[in-house]
């Protein structure tokens, strides 16, 4: 079963990148996910200042705006998709993720299965 770990950074620096983030912790976590053979995909997202939002109205007209900026305290900073047997295992991996510490949090979402 595939689960997406949405890694939210709590504290954001003035440049829009996650504060309290230790690179070595992330390297170690990434290696652990790879070594466990559960890695499906995963990316770290660029700083929030680079984000752009697109909306398309009913008439097909496109609106492009800068942002969104951090309206809430938490900002999506990256994600993993892992393939593990059940939610408890997914929660264990989420708990090992450096993004779950300090002011951050990891949201675990099962990936919808529409039957292959």
């Amino acid at each position: 079963m595939k689960y997406m770990l949405l890694i939210n950074a709590g504290a954001i620096t003035g440049e829009g990148s996650a504060a309290d983030c230790d690179v070595q912790d992330w390297v170690n976590f990434d290696k652990a996910v790879q070594d466990a053979g559960i890695f499906v995909s995963g990316e770290s997202l660029a700083d929030l200042v680079t984000a752009t939002s697109v909306r398309v109205a009913a008439d097909g007209s496109r609106t492009v705006v800068d942002g969104p900026f951090a309206e809430t305290r938490e900002v999506l900073g990256g994600f993993y998709v892992i393939d593990v047997p059940d939610l408890d295992v997914a929660l264990d991996w989420a708990a090992r993720c450096p993004g779950a510490r300090g002011s951050g949090s990891v949201v675990v979402r099962p990936v919808a299965d529409f039957g292959a």
Partner: peptide
Amino acid sequence: REARIPFR
């Protein structure tokens, strides 16, 4: 069922 909370 859908998030597969295990029975264990």
